[in-house]
């Protein structure tokens, strides 16, 4: 170990963390977007704070085109795969 911080390990954590930790939620969001499509009012408020207006019962969305569906499945598949990899990692005792 040279110096107090292991820079290479730190760098790896930051880079991989950004790729996975930020990439997975982004993929998840992309998948949702592909499945659900955007509404006609894209300028909807970014964040309607306070009252989350919600309807009970199933959310009805238009059936997405096959291409979008495949894209969404790829996105969700990657997300599930990453979670699976995390589980395998934990079970293999790779933690410290």
């Amino acid at each position: 170990m040279n110096g107090l911080i292991e820079w290479s390990a730190l760098g790896q954590v930051v880079v991989a963390g950004l790729l996975i930790g930020a990439g997975i939620p982004a993929l998840f969001a992309l998948g949702l977007r592909l499945v659900a499509g955007t509404s006609e009012t894209p300028e909807a408020p970014e964040r309607s704070s306070g009252t989350p207006r919600e309807t009970k019962g199933p959310v009805v969305i238009a059936r997405p085109s096959p291409a979008r569906l495949v894209g969404a499945l790829l996105c969700f598949g990657t997300v599930v795969g990453a979670v699976g990899a995390g589980l395998v990692f934990l079970a293999a005792g790779g933690h410290s």
């Binding site: 939620p25 977007r33 659900a36 909807a44 970014e46």
Partner: peptide
């Protein structure tokens, strides 16, 4: 850093998607 980049991307990508869908899915 990681969470703010992730949140920003998510906010961008879900812009315009109905809130019912995003809150259920997420």
């Amino acid at each position: 850093g990681v969470a703010s980049v992730g949140t920003f991307l998510v906010a961008r990508l879900t812009r315009g998607v109905s809130q019912d869908v995003t809150s259920r899915g997420f």
